[in-house]
Nucleic acid binder design. Structure first.
Lengths: 145, 145
DNA sequence: ACAAAAAAAGCAACATTGTTGCAAAAGAAA
DNA sequence: TTTCTTTTGCAACAATGTTGCTTTTTTTGT
């Protein structure tokens, strides 16, 4: 128990250090939320979910930092609520490199990264050149079935 | 010239009638914007683009109505700015049925519907069932190349 | 372990975006 | 035209996101 907690804590610090970020309470707590979470988190979730309340500005700035560093990525949605999820591919300050698809449940609205499914290649019309493909599937998830 | 204008006007009215919507000035003007536009429009674009200024509430409500009726559809984005585009497939009050992909230009940020490209089928993990697939490609468009 | 320097958090004030209820105006129907 | 219904515009509000600046926390060098 104590061991597990220590390990989780170590993992947090390791991730932050790898990205040359200073170790702060906010970053640890917000990152912790992502690690113990299956799906993606919207800004609002984070503000509420955290036991103690963060300043809204801190959450915004921390998420921005995480996105810049390639720790989390943004999932595009149709409902004006940006969702963030941990990057599992090779993301860094240089650029994000997520190629998996996302799944949003119609029922519980949880957003999942389906890491094993790779976005297919697309043949674009003449004149267009693609850099990145985002794919979001809507439907019913494994828990709501 | 006069003929062309009359025709365009007729087209507007036809679309509104087909969807059993009353013919109003706001609806005509907003629909007009979509018809004379290659890409997609965000809420803000519409407020600004219109020669005369619409009340913000009117724009929100009109867009909502158009989405409900299946006249326009929402394009998911990663930047918290919902974009709307005309539906060209079989959309109605019952449900949207758009299967084309979208393209967002890194440079000019114009959003295009690539109507000729159909979203590929995806094999989902066990337990998940898909209803709709959204696909957005980011890159450089034909005009910015 | 401590002090100085650097970075991040918190606060306040503000800007933008989206929502709701209601009265006035415009459109449809007769 | 007159009545009835729908839509618009306004005002007030709520939620979300941003910026500058001060205080606190974290790092670094000793």
């Amino acid at each position: 128990m104590k061991q597990a907690k220590a390990t989780a804590h170590t993992r947090l610090i390791k991730i932050l250090k790898q990205n040359s970020l200073n170790i702060t309470e906010s970053r640890k707590k917000i990152l912790q939320l992502f690690l113990e979470q299956d799906g993606a988190l919207a800004h609002g979730d984070i503000e509420k979910r955290a036991g103690e309340k963060f300043d809204r500005v801190t959450v915004y700035r921390t998420l921005q930092t995480f996105v810049n560093k390639g720790i989390v990525h943004i999932i595009p949605t149709a409902d004006n609520a940006i969702r963030y999820a941990l990057c599992k591919d090779d993301c860094s300050e240089v650029g994000h490199d997520d190629h998996h698809i996302h799944f949003v449940c119609d029922n519980c609205h949880t957003t999942y990264c389906l890491d094993d499914i790779v976005t297919p290649d697309i043949r674009l019309p003449k004149g267009y050149s693609g850099r990145h493909v985002e794919m979001v599937v809507e439907g019913i998830c494994k828990n709501c079935k």
